[in-house]
Design a protein around this nucleic acid. Structure first.
Lengths: 151, 151
DNA sequence: CTCAGTGCAAAGGATTTGCATGCCG
DNA sequence: CGGCATGCAAATCCTTTGCACTGAG
């Protein structure tokens, strides 16, 4: 099994541990390693990228643990037109943001918009859901195009 | 081969035919059948749903033709967290809109927001792309939650 | 005739799962 | 000790592709 040295538990890890425990899940070293990889990167990563960054991780366990972390609200799974899914820390751990998606290479970067604009969007969503009987959990705003290196 | 009766060519089909021809592609009866299925439905459909609606279509040809129609800008491929891709007519044929995505059953419905809000978004995007060197092609705004039947 | 389009069946490939083993609580 | 976590390998399943055939121009 992949074993890693101890590090002082940060707020993030305490929060994650609590969230997992709330779902009857353990915060194992493999799961901690996944969170640490995602914590260190400021953009969503594919499984392959995650495994590159920590080669001790087994692929199948990474899939399984990311799925658990997703269920517990610790990470978020992002799918684009690209053939790989990507993962990032959940928004309530890192802050609400949106994605720049490169349609050439699949790379995903974060961006934010003003709180005022977010508020306008929320008001518009309220009107839509009131009209349709749809219950909204969250919204997703992506900008699709070419990143600076593919551009 | 799936053969279907003639129908008076509408504006839509003339536009599609022209767009295909512009890419050196033919507007065959199978491709027309796909466009007709999508024209009749007001929400994005999975391949399986398309084949249900016109059982004469062969699965592999549907995949291939939808891919061609996508390249020519006639249809748009939509991926969500759901396991199936979905297809709808391109926005310039039906109008700009956004998607309500049911995280339970995967169903996707359309909605629109006010032109004023769209304009505000565009201005925000301009600022982001100016800052990041990203070239934007289009944006995507989804509302994720539960549809009325999954409620 | 020629060549793109078609349909069947088989291959691809990201993701999931079965199972034996290891480790945490 | 008991049960979840792990990792390897095999299975899944949406999607793509090879190939022989058909039909439009």
């Amino acid at each position: 099994m992949a074993r890693r040295q101890l590090a002082p538990p940060s707020d993030l890890h305490l929060t994650v541990a609590k969230r997992l425990r709330g779902d009857g899940q353990r915060y194992t070293s493999n799961r901690r390693a996944l969170v640490e990889v995602l914590e260190l990167t400021e953009r969503p990563l594919t499984i392959a990228e995650i495994l590159e960054r920590d080669p001790r991780l087994a692929q199948s366990s990474a899939y399984r643990n990311l799925s658990v972390l997703d269920s517990c609200g610790v990470v978020r799974r992002i799918v684009t037109d690209d053939e790989y899914a990507r993962y990032e820390l959940a928004e309530d751990l890192t802050g609400h943001h949106h994605h720049l998606i490169c349609s050439q290479c699949g790379r995903v970067e974060d961006f934010t918009i003003s709180p005022q604009l977010e508020a306008s969007l929320e008001r518009a969503f309220k009107r839509v859901t009131a009209r349709t009987g749809f219950t909204a959990e969250h919204h997703r705003l992506d900008l699709v195009g070419s990143c600076s290196r593919c551009g």
